[in-house]
Amino acid sequence: MNRLLGLVLLAGRRLAGGLLLLVGASFLIYFTIRSAPGDAIDAITPMGTPPEVKEKLAADFGLDQPPLAGYVTWLGRSATGDFGESLVFAPGEQVMTIARPAFKLTLLVSGGALLLCLFLATALAVVLGEPSPRQQLLTGALYFVTAAPAFVAAIFFSQGMNAFVRRFVEDAGYDTPPWYPIPIYSESVMPYFFAGIVLVAGDGLFMDMLNTVRAEILAVRNAQFIAAIRAKGASTLPHTFRNLVVPFVSAFAARLPVVLGGVVIVEYVFTLDGAGYLLLEASKQRDFPVVVGLSVLFTLAIIVMNLLADVVRAAVDPREVARNG
């Protein structure tokens, strides 16, 4: 009971901290906007924007007020999910209306990629076991291969796939798959799957994950209490799993920002309908409310992930509540 109470208190404190961070981050984002050179409104809107649109935008973002008052106005609107209307990308459309489905997709792709990465890294870590000099050639090669930025990996991947399909499907006279040649826009789920693979294989994510996961698994496997459990004749598996939950959740949460960075460019390379593509497209067309809305959403995702990770950690590890109690 005591433990449960401690957990609830910790979750409450973390929630408050998360809100504070969100306010702080939105403050930084807002003042980045305000720091625009010259007349902010001209700097951020595309040329030839009608004056009434500019006025509405200025009102939405509190640009017609002094910075702090403007921030409060903007924060108040944003807190209700109102990030204004899109200017160019989908004129007149609420930012949230276009951002929400795109963002869901992006979270799905990055979360899926991260899970896949965690799974593959764990599998390889179990197969490799204790580090030995003989494995160094393999890990060295893997290190090199997975260090490519995700967008370079994406290009290698799509070029390789295209060459493969051209050679063994098209030239052989079979029907080409709907996603060929990459990248073309298609309804198929394959490009999302490809994006996931590329995210796992790029940005040094995999080796980073492998090293972490491997160290954690070895640390638990070689822990004194595992020897003690073995010595008393009990199965070590349940104990091992339970003790790996915290490091695994931490490893997952800590890498979400990396993947959310990678996914932006990868979505663009594969022309996926995600938030990354939307962000870059909107930024290119200077559709400023969309860019700001998405920036807040990305930040929110990271804060929520850290919050969840903290709560899971505290739920699994009684020391966590004691430490932060």
Binding site: L28, L260, L279, S295
Partner: peptide, 16 residues
Amino acid sequence: TLPRLVFIILVCTIRN
């Protein structure tokens, strides 16, 4: 907590 690449793109949208 700021997502790096997203923030960089935001800055690029606003400034030169």
